[in-house]
Design a protein around this nucleic acid. Sequence first.
DNA 1: CGCCGCCTTGACATTGTTCAATAAAGGTGG
DNA 2: CCACCTTTATTGAACAATGTCAAGGCGGCG
Lengths: 232, 232
Amino acid sequence: MLTENVPQISRLPASTIGIRLPAAATPRIETRREPLAGLVRSFSKDEELFAEGDEAECFCEVKSGTVRTYKLLSDGRRLIDAFHFAGDIFGIEFGAEHRFSAEAVADVTVVAYRRSRLATVAETDPAFGDRVMAATLRSLERAQSHMLLLGRKTAQEKMATFLLDMADRLSDDDQHFELPMQRADIADHLGLTIETVSRTLTRFARKGLIDLPASSRSVALRNKPALRRLEA
Amino acid sequence: MLTENVPQISRLPASTIGIRLPAAATPRIETRREPLAGLVRSFSKDEELFAEGDEAECFCEVKSGTVRTYKLLSDGRRLIDAFHFAGDIFGIEFGAEHRFSAEAVADVTVVAYRRSRLATVAETDPAFGDRVMAATLRSLERAQSHMLLLGRKTAQEKMATFLLDMADRLSDDDQHFELPMQRADIADHLGLTIETVSRTLTRFARKGLIDLPASSRSVALRNKPALRRLEA
DNA sequence: CGCCGCCTTGACATTGTTCAATAAAGGTGG
DNA sequence: CCACCTTTATTGAACAATGTCAAGGCGGCG
């Protein structure tokens, strides 16, 4: 059942699995097959994996790097609904089209799975099916608490929530971590401007809540209880 | 299969099907059985159907009236994620607990279905199963575009979006409708204050975009194209 | 070394909030 | 049915938070 479909997939041009390369990008054809007939693809910083409105023929799992998914208003204002790190699954759709655009925050490697084969794969490997389902539900849950953040939290509360979440997801010791995204991405995730993000971080640092060692991308949480209280 | 379970349900005290009556409320026992073993329940204005964190033993379909689902911050700030009108299904959970509280915006009648029987019911009546699935996906979709609204739209854009959505869902002629909720609910849905909601409506009326006949709850859209442009 | 992208910081503008007063609507009991 | 009272909505003015604009710094890369 699995075997009869695999060759079919590797024959498909990239465009038909719903991942399109931007015209300008060098098409690095280092694709190879994954156990579950996923296609391994690499993208460099700011490359587009797919766009809102594209036919949703595939969904992805992050192998390494970070992906942002976002929506735009007509005048270019952007809201990043989520960042996706290694192990995260994103781009699952039940309708025909992707409802978000996806870009590489920095160089990224993903495994792309054909959506049409989800049912088959899930049967073959129930654990994988569960992971897909869990990913969908987690994204619903995240969307719901993110609404609360966007609609009712102050800049400080937003940043505190964000930092604690990042520590959770990116840090080994739950304290030190390197932010993979730039200020503009954080701002568009939290519904703020980059200036407010920057100022709020500086303020946290001055209050001794965090350390901002030189590099501006690395953060160390110095006082998590205080951050939790700030979270509201 | 269906018949052997029905009596069991009607024997269950209200509390065990996940809908709890507030202590103060007069317990109107006008419950009766629906075709699919749903329990018809009525609630009066501001009564709680269930609270965030309650065990999610049932989900509901609105028969008549309006329900709001919301989350709170520790200090009482509220975000209403959605309003639910006749025909809408809400309160479906995949985890153990409700992730939102639900209250009657005005007197409301719902049909409560036991979550544990969802699979059975869906098999018996596939169309119903589809409706439940569709409701879940629609709520995901709504959450996602609502994040964009909350994070990146101005007060005017939020109100324009809201009014167009309400016209869509509440109006026969797609123009005139009666808002079932008060300004505070609108404010907490859009991430604004009631003053801003009120001022924005007045401003729209002055610009000739809408009519606000006496009652303050009724609205008539006078210039939908302009509202659409404002929506961003 | 010098350009360029990203980040920070400051001064100022704006949007939306807060506080306060008033008005209007709706519900209740006489 | 009316008068009263409570709740809800509107409006104004002052204020605060955040956004905008602009300048400068820092770091990485060619």
